[in-house]
């Protein structure tokens, strides 16, 4: 398994911490999923931040702070600096949002922020598209991980552009990649792992499920299955049928 800035994760599942019905359900979902990373954010302190922080620490997983909601490189860079101090990690999930409806990344702001942060010693996980040219520029800027989207954040549509994602995976075979955003079902997560992606990051699909704990377990099993399948070298699909039962020895009836 490829590592993430020198860290080998014991599960390819990264799970968000937002939108759960209660803190107890969040904890149960993390336990059931076996997730190795929790994404968190920074918001104005209004009385709940300190309790939330102790809840997150008790999960015993690695923390990946985000710059969610930032629409400019400047905003994202400042948020990242603040997150590094609060969460005591160089890891940052860098989001620079370019459009309010699609929540797709602003590639120009993303690259600018990534350059600044990498130079300051941050270990950047850029939320990006499947664009191969942008990916190359992000790597040049010092990113050692890429996080291409599957589909727009919160949409649950799965892997929207399989061709683009396959091309990106093949173009940079040694770069650790996480499919971030758009994962709606465990089958989408397994699919991403089977395609050779190293991890998936999701939130809404678990938090907003009717039974988040059961869905978390389903995702945990799905990523295991996907990773096992990838390592087992799956067969290539073919256009025509090929009988699996031997023809030799068939009775003459």
């Amino acid at each position: 398994m490829r590592d993430f800035y020198g860290i080998t994760l014991n599960s390819p599942l990264m799970l968000g911490t937002a939108q759960y019905p209660s803190p107890a359900v969040l904890q149960a979902a993390f336990r059931a999923s076996g997730a190795s990373v929790a994404t968190v954010s920074l918001r104005r302190e209004a009385g709940q931040g300190q309790a939330f922080w102790s809840l997150i620490r008790d999960l015993g997983v690695r923390v990946l702070p985000n710059t969610a909601g930032c629409h400019s490189a400047r905003e994202a860079v400042t948020t990242a600096r603040m997150a590094r101090e609060v969460f005591e990690t160089n890891w940052i999930k860098l989001e620079v949002i370019g459009h309010a409806d699609t929540l797709q990344p602003d590639p120009f702001g993303l690259l600018e922020a990534a350059e600044t942060l990498a130079a300051e010693g941050f270990e950047v996980f850029p939320y990006t598209t499947e664009d191969q040219v942008l990916a190359g520029r992000l790597l040049d800027a010092g990113c050692k991980v890429l996080m291409p989207w599957g589909a727009p954040i919160g949409s649950g549509l799965g892997l929207n552009n399989r061709f683009g994602l396959r091309t990106l995976r093949a173009a940079f075979p040694d770069v650790p990649m996480v499919i971030d955003a758009g994962i709606g079902r465990p089958s989408h997560a397994a699919d991403a792992l089977e395609m050779g992606f190293d991890a998936v990051l999701l939130n809404t699909a678990v938090a907003q499920a009717g039974d988040p704990e059961a869905m978390a377990r389903a995702f945990g099993l799905a990523v295991q299955a996907g990773a096992l399948a990838r390592a087992a070298d799956p067969m290539e699909p073919r256009e025509m049928a090929a009988p699996s039962t031997p023809l030799i020895g068939k009775a003459w009836l």
């Binding site: 954010s41 920074l42 609060v86």
Partner: peptide, 10 residues
């Protein structure tokens, strides 16, 4: 002045 604290995030 902005005073930010850990919060839920995706």
């Amino acid at each position: 002045l902005e005073v930010l604290a850990p919060m839920q995030g995706g």
